[in-house]
Amino acid sequence: MSDAAQGLLVSHDLTKRFGGLLAVDSLELEARRGEILGLIGPNGSGKTTFFNVVTGIYPASAGRVLFDGEDITNLSPQAICRAGIARTFQRSRLSLSLSIFDNLMIGNHLRLNQGLWFNLVRRQAFEREFEENVARARELVKVFAPPLADRMFEAVTGFPMIDRRRIEICRALISRPKLLLLDEPSAGMTREEMTELMDDILEIKEHVEDLTIIIIEHEMGVIERVTNNCVVLNFGQKICEGTYQGVAADRLVQEAYLGIE
């Protein structure tokens, strides 16, 4: 089993059952290294559940998830984060009462010294680490959300949706993941904001080497512009995969989305 031949994230026969409901049904999915993979499908087709199973929030009912050749099925969210997967959430899950910097540092958790002695007693060392991380956070924000770089110590509550989304993406990126999962980043945005967001995503891809992205989207414009490949889900099953053009022309996909009989 050579690494190059295999995708970064592979799911085999992955199934998630909630009682009688099959949210994800025997899913075979592969995200190749360095690509942006679109995950599309109608509401309730299991896209977010797939993310939640991959990141360890829900245990899988059956099947396996392989990441970078390792089996990560049913590991804890913490272990999966350590393996190099970071995500954003469908409904923004920033801590609104905290500042941008605080939120980024939550994303940066694994790189910070969490020792009790270090944090309580060695305040000089803490101060150095703090300053280093302020610089690091500012660098990242400068690239992906330049206007926010000077407002890093303001509470997130005061920022509009698009900025919050950017902060959330920065929070995921600061841990330098190998795989980034974006769950409907365009939700609640205007046309203009959506265009900006697509630019952002393409810019991330340009700036961060070897990053693989899986993106859940309802906006076909976003999918068309940013993804290399797509997987279409319906009732938890994969009904089609390929490039956007190929997928959009597929009859099954049109049925699922438009209800053509």
């Binding site: 990141t55 969210p77 913490q78 899950r93 939550i106 010294n113």
Partner: peptide, 19 residues
């Protein structure tokens, strides 16, 4: 950072665990 962790745990356990 510990104080930040405590805030993160209070505000959103699931998101915190994912980081």
């Amino acid at each position: 950072w510990i104080g930040l962790n405590m805030d993160a745990v209070r505000l959103d356990e699931t998101a915190a665990a994912c980081f």
